[in-house]
Nucleic acid binder design. Structure first.
Lengths: 184, 184
DNA sequence: AATTAAGTGAACAGACCTGTCTTATTTTAT
DNA sequence: ATAAAATAAGACAGGTCTGTTCACTTAATT
């Protein structure tokens, strides 16, 4: 499993710095120091490589969050506040380069394209994740709050990415807290 | 000025349906029924065509908004509420395909690329526009509110684009109204 | 020690990209 | 009416892209 990980790591780095479409297979194999046939053995097409990249990024995000969300506050609104602070931290991480499935959906705008469809699945996944927490925290309309938080986070990710250092993550967190307090 | 407009209209349509990078010059000239030399006379490079597209979309947006914002409410918070409703309408328009400068900045992620830089300028422009209205409406911290509204609108635009019909625009508007009411 | 699997490096196909240029025709302006 | 500018249609250059294939070498397992 060493090769697969090496390829995925290199692809991830290239996808996030140069963009997905702009990162050619030739560049990926040159950068990771492997042969082209090796890449195509592990990932039969570039689309499957992109899909694996998107899946892994989502998995890592949820794992990172779940590890830090204290289960003690699970049944109070406080867990939502905590969530907001964690997301702010996540966005401000130097390795953060925007929500991967968002970027992918823009690079592959055709709704019939597998990458676009998979991105939509991951977007629904994120909103479901947030809505579930909102529900367990006792929000009035968990789905509405979950979607509003999604919008805030995705918007903050975009703005922070396009104009680094303007503090979008912090302001989004403040807005989220306001919405949460108003949702009891 | 007929040719220029025809080219720009065709390019706009292609950029928004297939993406910018995915729309080749050959496709643009075939679709608009002109010769390649004609395109390159009006737009010496594809980058300049993209720039013109971005500029025009922003201009049209502000023109559309200014026409509808009733100046009577200029000095009360009500104008912000009105603004939110207009933006919701704008997002729900069938021709809406996301904020153009956002899409452009994702398709050209290199901060040194002219398209990325121009996108950043347009993003600052939007935030300045919203902050100015927030200021004239008497918000406590106009810049903070302006940025929060920017984040909400951009986030809603993305979510609505990726998952059409989930009502992101409406929920973003509700969130915005909550934030506005809390900002007095 | 022998067989199978995985990796290398390079060449290749077929398509697409931007931008230049040529030649001939049409439109516009004086 | 004549000169100047704009357009058409397309070939062309030089580059990039994904994916396939071939001949050969290394590593693992049994």
């Amino acid at each position: 499993m060493k090769m697969r990980d090496k390829i995925l790591a290199t692809a991830t780095s290239l996808f996030e710095s140069r963009g997905i479409q702009a990162s050619g297979v030739d560049t990926i194999i040159a950068e990771s120091g492997i042969a082209k046939a090796t890449l195509y053995r592990h990932f039969p097409s570039k689309n499957l490589l992109i899909t694996a990249y998107l899946r892994e990024k989502s998995d890592r995000f949820y794992a990172w969050l779940n590890l830090r969300l204290s289960s003690k506050k699970a049944n109070s609104l406080e867990i939502l506040i905590e969530l907001c602070e964690l997301v702010e931290q996540w966005i401000m991480t130097p390795e953060f380069h925007g929500l991967p499935f968002h970027i992918a959906s823009i690079e592959f705008p055709d709704p019939a394209h597998p990458i676009n469809q998979y991105s939509a699945v991951l977007a629904v996944e994120l909103q479901g994740y947030l809505s579930k927490i909102a529900a367990s925290a006792g929000a009035k309309d968990p789905e509405a709050l979950g979607q509003q938080l999604t919008i805030l986070f995705e918007g903050a990710a975009l703005v922070e990415r396009l104009s680094p250092g303007v503090g979008a993550a912090k302001r989004a967190k403040n807005a989220a807290v306001t919405l949460i307090r108003a949702s009891v």
